[in-house]
């Protein structure tokens, strides 16, 4: 799967994103890392130019509440509603439902195992093969956790 790993907003810590990028590579995926401090507009354009299947967002700053809905909206607006979005970093439990309702399919907080993230991607791949929705547009309410 071609996956864009992005760091939206002003948070300057990307150790986590890099560890995940590396683990996904070792799991056989093609990972494009964007670097730090990308705007929602930049991220949506990168996903478009790369024609990625999935977008992993890592945020630790607490701004997910604003940034994630904006990114999902931009993806839908620009004809990329099929792109699967998953989240990592510090996302408080109370915000999970809201994130899922925006179209996010999985949230991986501290302590998550890379095996689990790979299992999630594997599950998503089989859903795509079976024409079941994983994107931010077409929703049957499925999410990983």
């Amino acid at each position: 799967m071609k996956i864009v790993m992005a760091k939206p907003g002003l948070d300057g810590h990307d150790r986590g994103a890099k560890v995940i990028a590396r683990a996904l590579r070792d799991g056989g995926h093609e990972v494009v890392y964007t670097g730090l401090r990308r705007t929602p507009e930049e991220i949506s354009r990168i996903v478009m130019d790369e024609d990625a299947t999935a977008l992993g967002l890592s945020t630790l700053s607490g701004a997910h509440d604003v940034l994630v809905p904006r990114i999902c909206e931009l993806l839908r607006e620009s004809g990329m509603g099929h792109v699967m979005v998953f989240l990592g970093g510090i996302i408080p439990e109370r915000d999970h439902e809201k994130m899922f309702s925006e179209g996010v399919r999985a949230i991986f907080g501290p302590g998550s195992r890379t095996e689990e993230i790979l299992a999630f991607l594997g599950k998503s791949e089989s859903r795509i093969e079976n024409n079941q929705p994983v994107g931010v547009f077409n929703d049957d309410g499925w999410h990983w956790n």
């Binding site: 990028a21 590396r22 996904l24 590579r25 070792d26 799991g27 056989g28 995926h29 093609e30 990972v31 494009v32 890392y33 964007t34 670097g35 990168i46």
Partner: peptide, 8 residues
């Protein structure tokens, strides 16, 4: 797998 980081 591949890690494509030229954008950074």
């Amino acid at each position: 797998g591949a890690l494509l980081g030229d954008r950074v």
